[in-house]
């Protein structure tokens, strides 16, 4: 190992923070480099001196009066006078000892403790938040991936459930069956009503009596649009009916058919209203 990298590793070597191979490398270098040996010895001396520093250092003045004033809510001067240590009349709120009546100082101390507990909890939450933010920076791609997978899973489950719900939901046929035991008859009634409305519409479209003497061309155009739409709906009804007859158990098909009937009924009644107004 060369001088510079070995020298950079001396502190780790001293702290026993190197793996064995690197420690051996450093030792090999130390054998041949007096400068690094000196450096290592100087560092050792520094650490010895640090460890040998006196742990106790007397404060240059008595700090107790101010501590008592702040902690016990005494006046600083009085604290110095009564510093010999009088028993407090009331224990702190949290003491397990039986609680006596607490004075104002006790209440304040309790409040201070509660406050400091809240502050501590708040600090703890902030620290946890900071840790989460830190972790989030590294984890967000994983998180995003997980969310994406979850969304896909949930949506597929939801779609399946929707399908099941639609299957289980009362269909038009069920509703019709509730009213009348024969949905076929109700559908037939739709058909008859539809046919009647259609003939009305056809009459409107063809004859256009225009009794009030309004613009005949406009009324004619309206009627032809109406007839065109009716024809489209009728084709849809025919197709739906055929499909329904081929597959009478399909709730979707009967819904489709009923919806087509209703669309025609709505159109014709609107046409009738228009005709009545004009």
């Amino acid at each position: 190992m060369n001088h510079d990298p070995a020298r950079d590793l001396l502190q780790d070597y001293l702290d026993a923070a190197l793996d064995e191979a690197r420690a051996l490398d450093v030792e090999a270098h130390l054998r041949e480099c007096p400068a690094c040996r000196d450096e290592l010895e100087a560092l050792r001396a520094l650490l010895r001196a640090a460890a040998a520093l006196p742990r106790r250092v007397e404060p240059p003045r008595d700090l107790w009066p101010e501590i008592a004033a702040r902690a016990l809510g005494r006046a600083s001067g009085a604290a110095a006078a009564s510093g010999a240590g009088s028993e407090r009349p009331a224990p702190p709120a949290s003491a397990l000892a039986p609680q006596g009546p607490r004075g104002l100082a006790g209440a304040r101390r309790g409040a201070q403790r509660a406050w400091s507990k809240w502050r501590q909890a708040w600090g703890e939450w902030r620290r946890i938040g900071a840790e989460w933010r830190q972790a989030w920076r590294g984890l967000w791609p994983v998180f995003a991936g997980t969310v994406a997978v979850l969304v896909i899973l949930l949506s597929s489950i939801f779609r399946q459930q929707e399908q099941e719900y639609l299957m289980a939901a009362p269909t038009i046929a069920d509703l019709l069956a509730a009213e009348c035991s024969e949905p076929e008859r109700v559908l037939a009634a739709y058909e008859v009503a539809g046919a009647g409305a259609r003939s009305d519409a056809a009459r409107l479209a063809g004859e256009s009596p225009d009794p009030a003497g309004t613009d005949g061309a406009e009324s004619g155009a309206l009627s032809s649009v109406l007839a065109e739409n009716l024809a489209i709906i009728d084709r849809a009804i025919t197709d739906a009916r055929r499909a329904y007859e081929a597959n009478p158990d399909s709730p979707q098909l009967i819904r489709l058919l009923a919806a087509a009937y209703r669309a025609r009924a709505a159109l014709t009644s609107r046409a009738a209203e228009t005709a009545a107004r004009s």
Binding site: L72, R88, P92
Partner: peptide, 17 residues
């Protein structure tokens, strides 16, 4: 803990330095 200020002061004296 039970509210003895004398004990508190004693703890201070023991650990102040």
């Amino acid at each position: 803990r039970r509210g003895s200020e004398a004990a508190f002061e004693r703890l201070y004296r023991l650990h102040a330095s």
